[in-house]
């Protein structure tokens, strides 16, 4: 049995990914500082509150209270990095053709369900992976881009609700645009949690690929020839 180096993630994608990681972290943190000043959202029905965003202990633990101006300042600086990096990523995937391995197709939705059943151990086999990502990944990685676009647009709508009144109206008005902007952020946090669990489960070879760009495949056949080095 021999090892073979297989290229997986281009340098540009690794860069966009790891650049986005701290920037999105700062956007969520500064967003939290802003949200605290008027923390009215909750999940519940009627008078019953199931989940309040957020409990005081949570704010205290993260040193959130009374930092609105700081939150706004950082939010309106790092929004540029989040935006430009996101644009660069999308343009890169289009121009390089990487989008082909990312965008789901007609089969993806059915297969993603099978992947999910497999991942929670209900189904024994997962559908075969064609290309770099399985169907659930394709849907997740495309959805997160759509969410990113949503965050930029709802963010713009609540940043300049008078000058961009049409955008604000498109999202159902100022209050609804704020709710959407917040809900998308909760979405990122959930994405992040599942992402981390999946990366841990997938193991070292998969994680290393996001840093080195290559995966190591073990093969039994003829001694392979390394890919030509540049």
């Amino acid at each position: 049995m021999t090892k073979k180096i297989v290229r997986k993630h281009p340098l540009a994608i690794r860069w966009f990914h790891w650049f986005n990681f701290p920037v999105l972290g700062i956007m969520i943190w500064s967003g939290l500082l802003i949200y605290w000043a008027n923390d009215v959202y909750k999940i519940g029905f009627g008078d019953r509150t199931l989940l309040k965003f957020f409990p005081d202990s949570f704010y205290k633990a993260l040193n959130v209270p009374f930092r609105l101006s700081e939150g706004m300042a950082y939010h309106f600086i790092f929004m540029w990095l989040f935006f430009l990096n996101g644009i660069a990523y999308v343009l890169y995937t289009i121009i390089s053709g990487e989008w082909r391995s990312l965008v789901p197709n007609r089969r993806s939705f059915k297969e993603a369900w099978q992947v999910l059943l497999h991942d929670v151990r209900i189904r024994k086999t997962a559908p075969p992976v064609q290309g770099k990502y399985n169907s659930a990944q394709k849907i997740a990685y495309t959805a997160i881009i759509i969410m990113g676009i949503g965050s930029v647009l709802t963010g713009l709508a609540i940043y300049k609700p008078v000058q961009l009144e049409w955008l604000c109206t498109l999202f159902g008005g100022y209050k609804m645009a704020r709710i959407l902007h917040f809900a998308l952020t909760i979405g990122y946090v959930l994405f992040f949690l599942i992402h981390i669990i999946q990366v841990l489960l997938a193991g070292w070879n998969n994680f290393r690929a996001m840093i080195t760009g290559f995966e190591v495949k073990k093969i039994n056949e003829e001694p392979p020839v390394d890919e030509p080095e540049k």
Partner: peptide, 25 residues
Amino acid sequence: NSGLTTSQVIEKKTVISFFFFFLFM
């Protein structure tokens, strides 16, 4: 790389990549 075994190339590339990764972070 042509003078190294595949395992050595993997090790070498991994270390270089992680070096730049930590430099970036």
